[in-house]
Nucleic acid binder design. Structure first.
Length: 211
DNA sequence: ATCCCGAGGG
DNA sequence: CCCTCTGGAT
């Protein structure tokens, strides 16, 4: 990626989404961890609807560990994948209590040992809660990165993460992560991208649509 | 019908 | 690598 192109992309994202930020409502690392886990295949708005009651009922890792699956499922009923998420939450609570004294760990290696927590979720928690420069690669970040030429078509998500980290300014990683997501959600959508109003079409590696 | 800030298992 | 889990919004 030519530096000039990258600067143009960053400038455009700053114009479109000057204050892109984390939309998941949370007030501590455990809540963030849970909210990100719940967001898989689900909109943030849907997650924010169930978390107030969930967080009130289960304020600590021990509470998740002790929870009954039926109760947990009740809180998550309106989310996609709610049964597997309920199972993961309980197991995650147990693992936190057993291995980390009930606290959310601060490293990628430790976080990804937790049931239901993969690299993407861990990166969000590290970046959002612990100030560790991170580039979480979700479906949006992966798609945008490939379309704009930050990565190749058949790169894995880990490849994409490495390439983004190699080229993007470290102090903007989390902001760009959020801006990629907003850009992917509202402009460079998976199915019907708004190529017509996109100022970056000339950089795109994919055939343009809706022109 | 299609998509949503994925992870785990086969 | 591919499949499954899953309801709600649009």
């Amino acid at each position: 990626m030519i530096a000039k192109k990258q600067d143009r992309i960053i400038a455009e994202l700053n114009t479109l989404f000057p204050d892109a930020h984390c939309v998941l409502v949370h007030s501590n690392p455990l809540e963030m961890l849970v909210a990100v886990m719940l967001s898989a295949q689900t909109t943030d708005a849907a997650v924010n609807k169930v978390t107030p009651a969930l967080f009130a009922a289960y304020p600590t890792a021990q509470d998740y560990a002790d929870a009954s699956l039926e109760d947990l499922e009740g809180y998550l009923k309106r989310l996609g994948l709610y049964r597997s998420k309920a199972r993961s939450l309980k197991k995650m609570g147990q693992a936190l209590v057993e291995h980390f004294d009930g606290e959310v760990p601060h490293t990628m290696k430790q976080l990804t040992t937790l049931p239901g927590v993969g690299r993407k979720t861990a990166n969000v928690v590290l970046g959002e809660c612990f100030g560790v420069p991170s580039v979480p690669v979700d479906t949006h970040v992966e798609r945008i990165s490939k379309r704009l030429g930050f990565a190749k078509r058949d790169d894995t998500v880990l490849d994409v993460e490495r390439k983004l980290k190699r080229t993007l300014p470290r102090d903007s990683w989390m902001k760009l992560h959020h801006q990629f997501i907003f850009f992917g959600r509202y402009v460079c959508k998976a199915q019907n991208p708004k190529c017509k109003e996109c100022h970056l079409v000339d950089l795109c590696k994919e055939p343009h649509k809706n022109l």
